[in-house]
Amino acid sequence: MTSPAAAIEFDDLTLGYDRHPAVHHLGGRIARGVPTAIVGPNGAGKSTLLKGIAGLLTPLSGAIRVGGRGRRGIAYLPQISEIDRGFPVSVFDFVAMGLWGRIGAFGGIGRAERGEIAAAIAAVGLAGFEARPIGTLSGGQMQRTQFARLILQNAETLLLDEPFNAVDQPTTADLLDLVDRWRDEGRTVVAVLHDLDLVRRRFPQTMLLARELVAAGPTAEVVGEANLAAAQRMIEAFDNHAHVCARPMA
């Protein structure tokens, strides 16, 4: 069980590929209802951590505990490059996938659901785009479409992997308003971000990763010169021909 104040807890968590750890002996928690940023240099294991929380990667050791409805309460926004934009589906059908948790593979999409889908599309400013194939959208429009799908997932915890990458200023502002809305609704937003100014302005809590946890807590304390420099040093020290980790398994 997680404590009531935590959305997610990490217990000596190691995640990785092919025995190489990408996240190493991570402990700590993500507080419920507080927008939390995950920052760190390239290769710090930020995306890997989100995949682990979403259940797409089995821990090499240690554990992730998800509160509330568990994994069913989690929505995950992967990086945009993993979608086949050449596949002929409309914006409406793409967004409708967000209802999967409720209607599954066979449930019908009735009038009520159609209304919800249209409302989600309107909420991200894409009203009128319902019939457009996703292949004709710009990068920013595609990201708005994915946020519409997230709205429908009605998740307790939302994991966003670099959600504002290659997205222009107005779109970022609109999508950040959605993040605020989710916060006001009591949802937990966890976002991997590179823009530290943005993190300082909009995300009260931050985890700084460099394969291991460098620092976690209130953003103003975590995102400082000393911590960032330490993170950079830890990444550069990585050894491709590493020995077996000697620390005891959790």
């Binding site: 979403a54 259940g55 797409l56 989690i74 929505a75 995950y76 992967p78 993993e82 979608i83 086949d84 596949f87 589906v89 793409f94 996938m97 999967w100 948790g101 599954g104 593979a105 996703i134 799908r149 997932q153």
Partner: peptide
């Protein structure tokens, strides 16, 4: 076919 990662995250 469209978004295998999404499907894996919900089902």
């Amino acid at each position: 076919s469209v978004d295998p990662v999404f499907l894996a995250s919900v089902s």
